[in-house]
Design a protein around this nucleic acid. Structure first.
Lengths: 214, 214
DNA sequence: TATGTTTTGTGAAAGTTGTAACGATTGGCT
DNA sequence: AGCCAATCGTTACAACTTTCACAAAACATA
């Protein structure tokens, strides 16, 4: 699967461009966008090559037209509906984070095993018991799922999701999910990320110490 | 910076091995570990090459000794202390997620601008006002920070962190942080991740549709 | 119109990450 | 002891990603 990094950055560019257009900016050069995105100008140009929108030399990119191209490239025309699985601490935080932000990509249903939560509306999102999963997924035409359940429950849940039309999963459970190859899974392993930071912060300290010696 | 992915997987291997050793397993082959980690056996062997621990043919790896090698490779001997910046919904979820899990990598202080939170203890972690940042960082010898504040506040905060000895940042603010090159930053951009999933779930659907035609 | 400067798009090189192939070593079995 | 199958470490290769380098295009200015 090529392009994965590029697509990620394209979504970032879009956000940055939205800020700019809100501020009244009409044109933007690759280095200006690059500075805001924390990458190089060449990378911006190369990424934008992928969506086929051509800027013009000396003037850069027309912000509105570029946004339109990005929208065309990134978004499903009718929008996509997302389900949240697991309404614990993390799930609730994700709900409050995502709700109302992206009209074309909204969380339309949440699920949890806790019967206390059934029927409640949390941050504007209805919470269902897990045995309604199949019905709701199909009724709402949900193709994307966010998995924020304990590790032991994740695989079984993923199987049910895939069997009912989910094509992409954002997985916060700290185990790898086994799914058919045509299903896209993005893993966010918080423990792994924190340990990575810890490791490389130590590395950094060592390197600077070593450099001082030379 | 090479090895980034490898270090990430090494932390995963360690978690899986801890489960195994708890279950009484003494030896493990590369395939077995690979299956649990969701990668290939070759990759496991290659990753383990990096830490210099040799398994033995036919018997695989001695779980306890391998864990010891991983600990030696991954961990700072005296442990590392972590600060959490921003105790909103996401911050609280992260606190509850991390607290008490990793003795060698524990969140020892939280900070928030909300004066209501000052002095409170949340999930076992003391919450400080932001103007105590410098003092607490130094007093507790904190080298790792988790940034879970709004985007507008993130850069200024990062500057203060770096100036006071923080060497690695786990950044949840959806903007790139400008920091000196020796500081390690791991970005977790939830919006980007979700949009990526949405994009590739659409891709997957297209590809399977196309394949059906052929 | 000619010239110079800035910026773009893109082919080629470099770097990083994942995969495959293979000799070497070990334990089990006869 | 001698052979076989399983597993390991490592080198070589392939795929993906980023960076470098430069021609072509557009605007400004004279």
């Amino acid at each position: 699967m090529a392009l994965e990094r590029t697509v990620g950055r394209l979504t970032l560019y879009r956000r940055l461009l939205n800020e700019q257009v809100a501020g009244g900016v009409e044109n933007l050069r690759s280095h200006q966008l690059a500075a805001r995105a924390g990458v190089t100008a060449v990378q911006v140009r190369r990424d934008l090559m992928q969506i086929g929108y051509d800027g013009s030399p000396k003037r850069g990119y027309d912000v509105k037209k570029l946004l339109e191209s990005l929208r065309h490239f990134l978004d499903e025309p009718g929008g996509q509906r997302v389900a949240l699985l697991g309404v614990g601490n993390l799930g609730r935080a994700l709900l409050s984070y995502f709700i109302g932000r992206r009209p074309h990509l909204s969380i339309v249903a949440a699920f949890d095993t806790d019967p206390q939560l059934s029927g409640r509306v949390i941050y504007g999102c209805r919470c269902h018991p897990l045995d309604e999963l199949e019905d709701v997924l199909k009724a709402q035409d949900i193709t994307v799922a966010i998995v924020a359940v304990p590790a032991v429950a994740a695989q079984e849940l993923a199987d049910r999701l895939v069997q009912n039309g989910v094509k992409g999963i954002l997985n916060f459970a700290p185990i790898p999910l086994a799914v058919p190859s045509e299903i896209f899974v993005e893993n966010i392993d918080l423990t792994m990320s924190l340990e990575k930071v810890a490791y490389f912060s130590r590395e950094a300290a060592c390197e600077t110490a070593c450099e001082r010696k030379n």
